[in-house]
């Protein structure tokens, strides 16, 4: 409705919008705003693109791959076949004749479960504590932050190890949560300081004046603005879960009930003598490569996603959202944030 078709007797607040927004349109707009626009921005950055592809590869490996590749069995092949020599054992075998490729693939589903549980726990806890503390301020803030600071100071790995020794967790999702028991504290602090600036924004103040409950303001006004930041940190905590879990399996602190790259490393290191002979080296290198590639994907994705923060890049894409011109995104959009220096 433009200024031209407004009749003289139109009174503010009493006119009703001439077009009704249907449910379908609203859903489409939401999808557009929440999925398509961010996806398009992400895709325009090569780092995020490569990172996404790597992460997709592992998701496929953990879902379809398990189905296609048979579980490794002791003695299914010769002992210590070198990699890339036998097509039926593409990455070679270990000293028991287990197919290493199958071991890598079958270690993926529990790992994915751990990652999702741990990263979800971290981001959800951090978002709840961070937004509530930052928005409320005052005594609530002080108390919550004191608690957070204490958790933040306790070194993660020793705490996790002590708890893992006592509880001996076996379920991947339980392990995931234990691994991130205090990992959320740092993120909660970071989110809080973002909320501190956001709570003074006019749209938040408007909601406050309208008397909306705190919960609604947090969910509808504050958290959406933090979404890109939360996404980046979801990926970062996923990396933490991978590093820590593999490390603990490698040390033999977590019970060997699941296939895991750390278990492979541990066996190669302790029983395989991979340190002494070149013949067993691939047994150690294969799981290492699996870890490094996955976390490389995570970091690339996180680095590329940085641009989602940038309101300028976002605004440009939102204008194009409906239209079909996503290709103009690439030229120097990566520089938008950085070329202000002139």
């Amino acid at each position: 409705m433009t200024a031209d078709d407004r009749t003289p007797d139109d009174v503010p607040f009493e006119t009703v919008s001439s077009s009704e927004v249907t449910r379908g349109e609203r859903i489409r707009a939401t999808i557009d705003e929440w999925i398509l626009v961010p996806a398009r921005i992400l895709w325009s950055d090569w780092r995020a693109r490569v990172g996404t592809l790597i992460m997709l590869l592992y998701v496929l490996m953990g879902t379809v791959g398990v189905w296609l590749v048979d579980a490794p069995q002791i003695g299914e092949g010769e002992r210590l076949i070198p990699p890339f020599t036998d097509p039926s054992y593409p990455l070679g075998t270990d000293s028991m004749g287990n197919d290493l490729f199958a071991q890598v693939v079958h270690a993926t589903p529990p790992m994915l479960e751990m990652i999702v549980a741990g990263a979800l726990f971290t981001t959800v806890m951090a978002t709840i504590v961070g937004t509530f503390s930052g928005y409320k301020g005052g005594r609530t803030d002080k108390l919550l932050m004191m608690f957070t600071d204490i958790l933040l100071t306790i070194p993660g790995l020793p705490l996790v190890i002590v708890i893992a020794v006592i509880l001996e967790p076996r379920e991947p999702w339980v392990i995931g949560i234990i691994l991130t028991l205090n990992a959320w504290a740092g993120l909660a602090r970071a989110i809080r300081s973002q909320v501190l600036t956001m709570r003074e924004e006019s749209f938040v103040e408007a909601s406050r004046l309208m008397g909306l409950p705190t919960r609604t303001i947090l969910v509808k006004d504050i958290v959406p603005g933090l979404m890109p930041y939360i996404l980046v940190n979801f990926v970062n905590s996923a990396r933490t879960v991978v590093f820590t879990s593999v490390g603990l399996y490698f040390l033999g602190i977590l019970p060997f009930t699941n296939h895991n790259w750390g278990v492979m490393m541990n066996l190669a290191y302790t029983t395989g003598g991979a340190l002494y002979t070149l013949r067993a080296a691939h047994w150690l290198l294969v799981p290492m490569a699996a870890i490094v590639l996955l976390s490389f994907g995570f970091i690339l994705f996180a680095q590329g996603t940085d641009r989602l923060f940038n309101p300028r890049v976002r605004a440009r894409h939102e204008n194009n959202a409906g239209a079909n011109s996503s290709d103009d995104a690439d030229e120097n959009s990566g520089k938008v944030s950085t070329h202000i220096q002139g």
Partner: peptide
């Protein structure tokens, strides 16, 4: 980015090897 995606213990094992 690449060096950061190597866990420190993986590099440690490679170095000690």
């Amino acid at each position: 980015i690449f060096l950061n995606s190597i866990p420190y213990y993986v590099l440690a094992i490679i170095l000690v090897y």
